[in-house]
Write a protein that binds this DNA or RNA. Structure first.
Lengths: 229, 229
DNA sequence: CTGCATTTGTGCGTATGTATT
DNA sequence: CAATACATACGCACAAATGCA
């Protein structure tokens, strides 16, 4: 790590082979491998079998990470919540929607509206959830209204498409009249808008976009970061 | 992992020792250690030297993680920001503050107020930042007003106290009159309140609490989750 | 397509250090 | 102080992936 930080090995360079590192430092292959593994978990190098290890970052800070056991943990409501299905419709992305979802104009999508409550009946809803999914995933909607699984889980089960990359953005806003009506709140009340883009890889286009509009008085997002071991 | 999932080893139980696992599976200690290390990075078990490994989760899903190279990445303003020091004072926690910071009443703390702007001069501020740090860390304040380092970095440099656990909570609120005046915004405008508790371990009390009140129109929090290798 | 060299991945065996009980 | 258990390190061998002649 020290040599990488000092510029002895630049980003993009291949690290010396494990055998060379053994000789260079006078240690066993086992020790070299432990060290390189540490560089990997620090995100400093990436290794490929039969090829070698490449330097990808020179900071070498031990990374903190927020880890989640499943995608569902992202929706950290802190308490169990019930979902109630409102409606779904097929839409062709107009200019505004294409802009928001970062897709081409005219793309055929399914839009699903749901509410999230603390318990099945009686309570004021906590969040208004809008899902956008590709038209080819349309049949997911049938399951959504019946099974208490997340859309991501249903898609993984039915289509084998697994979300390996999720981008989440959180911002604050005021409830519009329509949103307030759905949430049984007052227009102008503060709200958290959480948007998640699910994709199969960091490069791929998202196959699912979920946007939750949450009443600020009923919800906050808590994340715990700790050192990777 | 399979045995844990099947309930052979329950949450809270100790895993068999490495020597027992060697015999049970007829493999070498090295192989046992590789397997247990995998369980650790999956978050399924936690190991302590001289004691053993405890089962802490039974899902065994490969975890997704948001990794950050440094604490500073948490403040993901998306653009470079400048910090300007406003004021600092010594306070003894009253009931309200003790409640908010989860510390005992009367604890002596240093409260620091700062503004965060997109550029050094002329721009409207983006966020109003309040720091609370233990009184013994008081001298950090001198550096804060001069160096463009984060409080966490300064504390690590001067005191050797390193944040290995950070809890972040994000909620939405409306600006109060005082906050709006500082941010050159209107009272009632929406805002994101981001609070981070820095501590040396997940169990320890935080040595630093930072609360940022951010103009919703100038700021959002973006996190990227991807599979751990 | 085959064969070979290179490189990382996986596994076995052994010894010693160190923290906990 | 001893026993136990995990951490670290050495050595060796073979498997699997990659690239090249």
């Amino acid at each position: 790590m020290e040599e990488i930080r000092k510029g002895r090995h630049r980003i993009g360079d291949m690290l010396p082979t494990e055998t060379e590192l053994m000789r260079a430092y006078g240690v066993s292959r086992h020790t070299v491998r432990m060290a390189v593994q540490d560089l990997r978990t620090r995100g400093a190098v990436a290794s490929r079998q039969g090829q070698g290890s490449t330097v990808v970052s020179a900071t070498g800070q031990a990374r903190l990470a927020e880890t989640i056991q499943s995608i569902e943990d992202l929706i950290a409501f802190g308490q169990e919540t019930q979902r109630s299905f409102l409606s779904s419709r097929v839409v062709d992305a107009d200019v505004a929607l294409a802009e928001e979802l970062d897709c081409r104009i005219g793309r055929r999508l399914v839009e699903v509206l749901m509410l999230r409550k603390a318990s099945a009946t009686g309570d004021r809803p906590i969040a208004l959830v809008t899902l956008y999914l590709d038209f080819v995933l349309e049949h997911v909607v049938e399951d959504l209204s019946q099974v208490q699984k997340s859309a991501a889980e249903i898609i993984e089960g039915r289509f084998g498409i697994k979300a390996e990359s999720v981008v989440q953005s959180i911002e604050a806003a005021l409830l519009t009249d329509a949103q307030a009506a759905q949430l049984q709140a007052r227009p102008g009340d503060p709200a958290l808008i959480i948007r998640r883009d699910y994709s199969t890889s960091p490069e791929a286009d998202p196959f699912l976009v979920a946007r939750s509009i949450c009443r600020a008085d009923a919800f906050k997002v808590v994340s715990r970061f700790s050192c990777l071991s």
